[in-house]
Design a protein around this nucleic acid. Sequence first.
DNA 1: CCTGTCCATGGAAACGATTCCATCATGGTT
DNA 2: AACCATGATGGAATCGTTTCCATGGACAGG
Lengths: 352, 352
Amino acid sequence: MDRRATIKDVAEAAGVGVATVSRVLSGGSASAAARERVLAAAAQLDYRPSALGRNLRQRRTGGMGLLVPDLTDTFYGQLAEGVLACARSAGEPVVLGSTGGDPEQEADLIGMLIEQSVDRLIAVPSGDAETWTPAMRAGMTVIFADRLPSQTSPDGTGPSAVGDLMALDGLPPAPPARPLDVPAVVADDRAGIRTAVRYLRGLGHKRIAFLGGPGHDGRADAFRAAVGEPVDEELIVFGTGSRDSAYAAASGLFQSRPDLSAVVAGGNVLGEAAVLAARELDLRVPKDVSLVMYDDVPWAELCSPPLTVIAQPGRDMGYRAAELVLRAGTRRARSVVLPTELIVRGSCGPRR
Amino acid sequence: MDRRATIKDVAEAAGVGVATVSRVLSGGSASAAARERVLAAAAQLDYRPSALGRNLRQRRTGGMGLLVPDLTDTFYGQLAEGVLACARSAGEPVVLGSTGGDPEQEADLIGMLIEQSVDRLIAVPSGDAETWTPAMRAGMTVIFADRLPSQTSPDGTGPSAVGDLMALDGLPPAPPARPLDVPAVVADDRAGIRTAVRYLRGLGHKRIAFLGGPGHDGRADAFRAAVGEPVDEELIVFGTGSRDSAYAAASGLFQSRPDLSAVVAGGNVLGEAAVLAARELDLRVPKDVSLVMYDDVPWAELCSPPLTVIAQPGRDMGYRAAELVLRAGTRRARSVVLPTELIVRGSCGPRR
DNA sequence: CCTGTCCATGGAAACGATTCCATCATGGTT
DNA sequence: AACCATGATGGAATCGTTTCCATGGACAGG
């Protein structure tokens, strides 16, 4: 087995210098004669430039990194497909990492990407600003997708989980880590949640619960805003990311607050858990409890009743993010907010 | 912003040569004194070796490639999670590509990986042996997962789609492309399908159909073997990969053969299509038609009735494949066949 | 005919790591 | 005391590409 042809082989075969070969192949200026001979020699030798040499010389790996919490979550599958579609049409490689929603794993993966000199990154962030400073310091072009890093609330109200965590180590109350200035591609959560709540209100529901997962703080806030004062915080519960914990949260919610008549699930994993928990507790959907789920996924239609959802364009989100991250450098990317759509199926009914 | 520290900076700071730094950091022999000073300097400078230089010198990119047909198919999401979990614990990057089940895109992605000098690849193959020769010729270590490339049947019976395609161009009847000698991690399709068919037979079903997608030739063959002679080929239909085509195939099947009483779906996308098509045609599951679906996915339980499935361990499959591809080189990898399990839920009933 | 401009060209440096190899110090054995 | 084996060490080569720069030829204008 002979090794791959190098640029030197091509240069020799074409009777020109390596510089000329490089210029011809990467669009520099060259005479028609030289161009022709180089192209012929390259084809003859089946030459493909090695990304290794180029990357080293340019001190950067092409392509982009992609960090998502969990690929078995259909929504992130859609998002990844969008990113991959864009990357493929650009001929760029994508380095994938799954964080499991864990900031620590996320930090590890960011470190790995830095080591690889991947300098463009699309991420559904799990960690907070601190997790992301190494990436910024390394000069990465980062685009967030689907959500922003949870922020230590600057005013002290609504202590986030992150805030609690940081309080543990006895350090000063977290330097006012200014929010990261990173462009993002997100859905219009505020409008989506508002639409869902109004829809449920229109059906007569008064006690509406929100079932969220990690990273759904923004949606929970939108929910608070949509239901208006007074907010019954007991009706806002969170799972930690695993399907089990989502189920436990849903089940706990149904049992502790039998008076609720409708649930907004902040993501498809939560929606799944809500359906399962309701079934287990003999609550009928939508007779006993109405359900609106964030994310439209193929199986939402399979449920019975088919689930009413707030659709967000996962694939588009990924595609747009990939476009942004590839264009970046040309000019600073601006954030993008994509519209959501309430798709009414059968999981909501009038208040019993 | 100063650039990242290089090995040269560390050597200078520690007062040693670059060779010593390299040895210390990659486990070579060095005196305790040197080791200590190098480690201190490296920590001081926050040095992380660049994968770029290493890769070029070693003429190979670390990590592995992963090629799947479609990430919105939950099963491939599971498989990818398994691969990523193993890669993460090894600290290796994963370059992901989605082929859409299209051999042409697959070939493009293989080319991209070769260009990147990625020399380890896990793939759910879509193309035939010919698609894979470039990868073999490049000396890649390839592990197939979930299925093997479709083979031009050597004896001429059962002309595969591939065979037909090759006949078109008037070339000699396809050189007997010997099957690729590539290790694989697959589920025991034969046993899985057999179990499903026996289970349905036990419920009294006589006319059982198989609904397959691209890459399900093996499962279709297993189905033929399981039902035994005579095989009613009309009861074996295929979609082309998209959800629409799966739906069309399912719908066509139900309409053309109203006498069938049970369906085995070769994958979760096909199962989804079968449920949808049945509902549209007012066929009740399991009263009018029983359904067994290949792949256990979280939403199988959400359907009503919950779907009886043949579970295959997608995550394990990915993890094992990643282990194999990382170990390869140590010794030639052997193929692995993982067990399947029939999980009885509610989508099968006695023949009406 | 001379000179200045422009462009194509190829040699060589650079990128950051690993690894070969020659050198040197050390310590033990004859 | 002479010699050899061993092990640590650093300089330099290497990987394959891009890009800088010096060179030389062609061509146009004076």
